[in-house]
Write a protein that binds this DNA or RNA. Structure first.
Length: 518
RNA sequence: GCUCCCUUCGUCUAGUCAGGUCCAGGACGCCAGGUUUUCAUCCUGGUAACAGGGGUUCGAAUCCCCUAGGGAGUACCA
């Protein structure tokens, strides 16, 4: 038997680059979606093209209140900007499919007129029964050349019969008529050549009985009308590519170029990353915190967890793409300059929470002390602690190397703001000897006599004091640290004393000596 | 079940298109040592991978075939 062949050979279009991110407002956007938006954005900017946001809300049943706003706010937080969007408008609007609904009917009609589509009157129940039966027989039920002659559709009816049903208001859908016995050859920017036999694909519904187009129709019509040059989307769409290409052909339109991005996988086990995984595994899957409007269930977000958007984006960009060099740190401009869709990998990537934290650390240590201070001040205020920004900046400068998030500043340096009240038992056991109290009191007296209470002076004074007295460095310093910090951690003691000041230093020593008992 | 996609250290990946310079490089993590008055940082070192099997070739992570595993799709959802 002869098999027809259909080649969709991508032609180098000398047109302007236009890409779109087209989410469905059925809930919050997770990091996989953000990455898709990001790659679209990087591609558009790199090529000096346009980035469009289109809301695909053709499914009325799955509409979620607040989801569209969430999407906009998330992308905004990430620094992903649109040239055309529902909010901003643009020459090809409206950018919400629900506002374009009148548009789609004519295209559906056009396809029926040209014989590329037909009316189908099968009920959802009938189809479900057929699918179930197919499953039982281990033979897939496909609505196409193999079965359509036995089903209730205009292909098997006289025009009068069809018209009568239509006139009577009988519910119908419009289905695309997949050409039979044809090998469809497609080209993907990431995957290369992909082939599929037309008899394995469904006569997909283009127009639903509720009067709305399905994704497939609306998507193709809008991409064409909006002059989209490249469709960059998730791999879950790859199986629909033949249908989409066939649709372009049926309309007589030039298709855009396609790139199907690999999926983001669960960090543990297998499968595509899903909304539940984040809080189950202790890391966010959403850019921003999301509260379900119906159930009230909250899911954590990167922003609230303390991530910088730059770090989040950097981490996401490298999940599935790499520049081919060993550079890992990129700001948005750097990403735009380095991005190449051809260097996107083919296999799915597991998200690594540890690496995400490392990225944040990298951005944090590069931040100015003043900025860190601004970010930490509100957290101090929450604890009813007021401090001078200059002081907080100095603390931040001293501690930033050991932080992953600004909020770690409290854990690492609360003693800069609050004298210890309790002391680490382990350290007491190890460092607090019988003669330590006297020793510490002597040290306090020496410190009190210092003229200039500055880091260098303190450091040399303490060192020479220890030397002349013949004490062990470790014994003195660790005990002193216990008194000032409450445990055995923190930066150089001279730095701590300089920052908290002479009076506070002496106070802590004298208070601790009377408080610590072994 | 069927269709399509994928497969290099635990993870992200370089290298695969143009076979040799790869007994496979980097990063995160982990481990050890060094520095340090503590902890952290930092520095140095280490750990650890071409899914398996056939072929082609003087030579294969790279090309071909098969097997296995994983993923996606299979809705009047997107």
């Amino acid at each position: 038997m002869y098999i027809f062949a259909l080649h969709f050979i991508p032609h180098s279009m000398n047109q302007t680059i236009r890409v779109r991110f087209a989410p469905s407002p059925t809930g919050p956007l997770h990091i996989g979606g953000v990455r898709t938006a990001l790659y679209n954005y990087l591609f558009a900017r790199k090529q000096h093209g346009s980035m469009i946001l289109r809301i695909e809300d053709t499914d009325q049943a799955r509409f979620v209140q607040g989801a569209e706003q969430y999407i906009t706010e998330s992308l905004n937080w990430c620094g992903i900007e649109f040239d055309e969007s529902p909010g901003k408008g643009g020459p090809y609007g409206p950018y919400r499919q629900s506002e374009r609904r009148e548009l789609y009917q004519q295209y559906s009609d056009q396809l029926i007129a040209s014989g590329h589509a037909y009316y189908a009157f099968d009920t959802p129940e009938e189809l479900e029964a057929l699918r179930k039966e197919g499953e039982k027989r281990k033979q897939p039920f496909i609505y196409n050349i193999l079965s359509r002659q036995h089903l209730r559709n205009s292909l098997n009816q006289s025009p009068q019969e069809t018209q009568q049903l239509l006139d009577s208001g009988y519910p119908y859908v419009v289905r695309f008529r997949i050409p039979e016995n044809t090998v469809i050859t497609m080209d993907d920017l990431i995957r290369g050549k992909v082939q599929v036999h037309s008899d394995t694909i469904d006569d997909k519904v283009l127009f639903k009985s509720d009067g709305m187009p399905t994704y497939h129709l609306a998507n193709i019509v809008d991409d064409h009308l909006m002059k989209i040059s490249h469709v960059i989307r998730g791999e879950e769409w790859l199986p629909s590519l033949p249908l989409h290409l066939l649709l372009y052909q049926a309309f007589g339109w030039d298709p855009p170029l396609f790139a199907h991005l690999p999926l983001l996988l669960k960090p543990d086990g297998n499968g595509k990353l899903s909304k539940r995984d984040g809080d189950r595994l202790g890391f966010p899957v959403f850019p921003l915190q999301w509260e379900d409007p119906v159930t009230g269930e909250k899911s954590s977000g990167y922003k609230e967890a303390g991530y910088y958007p730059e770090a989040f984006i950097n981490m996401l960009a490298l999940l599935g793409w790499n520049p081919g060099t060993e550079q890992e740190l990129f700001d948005m401009d750097g990403l735009i300059a380095a991005f190449d869709i051809g260097r996107v990998g083919k296999s799915g990537s597991k998200f690594d929470p540890d690496k995400a934290k490392w990225f944040n650390h990298q951005y944090l240590i590069r931040r100015s002390n003043a900025a860190l201070s601004d970010e930490f001040l509100p957290l101090l205020r929450e604890r009813n602690i007021s401090a001078k920004p200059e002081y907080v900046a100095k603390v931040a400068g001293l501690l930033k190397e050991r932080l992953q998030f600004v909020s770690d500043l409290w854990e690492e340096g609360s003693f800069f703001f609050q004298a210890p009240i309790t002391y680490d038992e382990q350290v007491i056991k190890k460092r607090w000897k019988a003669d330590t109290p006297t020793l510490m009191l002597d040290l306090a007296t020496m410190l009190e006599s210092l003229e200039a209470f500055e880091e260098e002076e303190i450091d040399s004074a303490v060192k020479s004091w220890i030397e002349t007295k013949g004490y062990g460095m470790g014994a003195v310093m660790n005990a002193l640290r216990l008194l000032l910090v409450g445990t055995s951690k923190g930066p150089h003691l001279a730095s701590i004393m300089t920052l908290i000041g002479k009076a506070e230093t002496l106070r802590r020593i004298r208070f601790g000596v009377t408080t610590i008992h072994t």
